[in-house]
Simulated scan of single mutants.
Amino acid sequence: MTKRILIATLLSLTTAAAGTLAVAKPGFGPERHKPTFEQLDTDGNGALSKAEIAAMGQARFDAADTNGDGLLSAEEMTAKAQQRIAKRTAAMIERFDKDGDGALSAEEMPQRRGPQQLLDKADTDGNGSISKAEFDTAQAILETVMKKRHHRGGPDRQGHQMDAE
């Protein structure tokens, strides 16, 4: 399974790219607010109703609807995305800036799954390169992973939330 995930990551890195932060799924990253059960249980009866959960969603919508017209314009959605990006960026710099200069050098950047490690996972014959057949196999694995995510409502390649069918 780890091999499949690494191959999927390799392929998604080659196809997804830069725009994913701008459309990141709300609720992920350092700014994520996890309400407590007590905060969600607004009537204090020890159980969460559909109405209480819906109220939380409405509150999030209302917070993003800065002009109060009941609609989210492109500008409001962009502003919200920019806020998330700014918070995520600040948290990343705070976490990885070892020399304290307020910026990340190439050496300070997190190295979770380097390109060489991903190449090694896709290179099933161990010859140091990825053949067309290995690439096609990796693509097929990626498509299978994406279909499974789609069926359970996970994000697609670009990080967009997909509804389960």
Rank of each mutant, 00 (worst) to 15 (best):
Met1Glu: 09
Met1Tyr: 07
Met1Gly: 04
Lys3Ile: 05
Leu6Ile: 08
Ile7Asp: 08
Thr9His: 14
Leu13Ser: 11
Leu13Cys: 09
Thr14Asp: 10
Ala17Pro: 00
Ala18Pro: 11
Gly19Ile: 07
Val23Cys: 05
Ala24Leu: 06
Lys25Ala: 14
Pro26Ser: 06
Gly27Asn: 01
Phe28Leu: 11
Pro30Leu: 01
Glu31Pro: 05
Glu31Lys: 03
Arg32Ser: 12
His33Met: 07
His33Leu: 10
Lys34Val: 11
Thr36His: 02
Leu40Lys: 12
Leu40Tyr: 13
Thr42Lys: 10
Thr42Leu: 05
Thr42Trp: 01
Gly44Ser: 06
Gly44Cys: 04
Gly44Tyr: 04
Ala47Arg: 15
Ser49Ile: 06
Lys50Ile: 14
Ile53Pro: 02
Ala54Asn: 10
Ala54Val: 09
Ala55Lys: 09
Gly57Thr: 12
Ala59Val: 11
Ala59Phe: 08
Arg60Phe: 10
Arg60Leu: 14
Phe61Asp: 02
Asp62Phe: 13
Ala63Leu: 05
Asp69Asn: 12
Leu72Glu: 03
Glu75Ser: 14
Glu75Ala: 15
Ala79Thr: 15
Ala79Ser: 12
Lys80His: 13
Ala81Gly: 11
Ile85Asp: 00
Ile85Lys: 03
Arg88Gln: 11
Ala90Asn: 05
Ala91His: 01
Met92His: 02
Ile93Arg: 03
Glu94Gln: 15
Arg95Leu: 06
Asp97Gln: 00
Lys98Tyr: 04
Lys98Gln: 13
Gly100Pro: 00
Gly100Phe: 00
Gly102Thr: 04
Gly102Met: 03
Leu104Ala: 01
Leu104Gln: 01
Leu104His: 01
Glu107Pro: 00
Met109Cys: 08
Pro110Lys: 06
Gln111Lys: 15
Gly114Glu: 13
Pro115Trp: 14
Gln117Thr: 15
Leu119Asn: 07
Asp120Leu: 11
Lys121Arg: 11
Asp123Thr: 09
Thr124Asp: 02
Thr124Glu: 03
Thr124Ile: 09
Gly126Ser: 03
Gly126Glu: 01
Asn127Arg: 07
Asn127Gly: 05
Ser131Val: 07
Ser131Met: 03
Lys132Ser: 12
Lys132Cys: 07
Glu134Arg: 02
Ala138Asn: 02
Gln139Asp: 05
Ile141Thr: 11
Leu142Tyr: 04
Thr144Phe: 03
Thr144Trp: 03
Val145Glu: 12
Val145His: 11
Lys148His: 09
His150Trp: 09
His150Thr: 10
His150Cys: 06
His150Asn: 06
Gly153Trp: 02
Pro155Asn: 03
Pro155Lys: 04
His160Phe: 11
Met162Leu: 15
